[in-house]
Design a protein around this nucleic acid. Structure first.
Lengths: 111, 111
DNA sequence: AATATTTATCGTTTTTGTACGATAAAAGAA
DNA sequence: TTCTTTTATCGTACAAAAACGATAAATATT
């Protein structure tokens, strides 16, 4: 079977992996940049900038939203997205923490 | 077509995405933890700890290696892996940098 | 009311990821 | 040399991701 075994790992590991997965595509990193640069974070603007079809961009936005990294509000016929800084910072901190925790544990390199 | 369009993005975006992808599975995060905890980072030890088949672990190790996050030395019939701290720190810094750059750019939230 | 604009969702195709067993390769032990 | 141990790789199967066009839903505009 090729059923993923994500359940077999700790919640923290799962959460961090999910966060990393959300950033694991250049389009989604590009989207975050656009959201930070433009005050008007309208879906259409993102579509104009990225070299992807509208439906594909919408899909990436959905993934970022499900990961908690962005929020989206309906504004008439448009959708306005922006970065969820709280969540973003939390994950950034957890990631840094992993790095430093690992480094502290490392007694001495073996190879 | 469903051919990924990674080439259409900047190198920095691609690199960061590749780094994130390497961490986008709980097993690979777990492997990094084991590598940091044990001085003897033998493949077999990792296999014992993880709930995955030997071939699957070997595959994950390969991905981490290709991402540059770990180094692997052959030691007789065994393989000894350890974290490449230089690469790890570099990516950690770039990731933090992205976060702070985004945050500085954010003039005011719009939604 | 009819039309246009905007975006989410559906359906589909292709590619990549995840997982395993089986086997090959390499080195140590008998 | 033969056998055992260890790990990488191959082949395979299924799952999930990435991409697109088409369409539906919601709201403005005329």
């Amino acid at each position: 079977m090729a059923t993923p075994k994500t359940e077999a790992f700790s919640k923290k590991e799962q959460d961090l992996a999910a966060f990393a997965k959300a950033l694991a595509h250049p389009a989604r990193i590009a989207i975050l940049k656009v959201l930070a640069q433009n005050n008007e974070c309208i879906c259409g603007e993102i579509v104009e900038v990225l070299p992807l079809a509208q439906s594909t961009v919408s899909q990436h936005l959905k993934e970022l939203k499900e990961a908690g990294l962005i929020d989206g509000n309906v504004d008439g016929p448009r959708s306005c997205y922006c970065i969820n800084w709280k969540a973003f910072e939390k994950f950034n901190a957890e990631f840094s923490s992993l790095f430093h925790k690992l480094k502290d544990q490392q007694a001495k390199s073996c190879c």
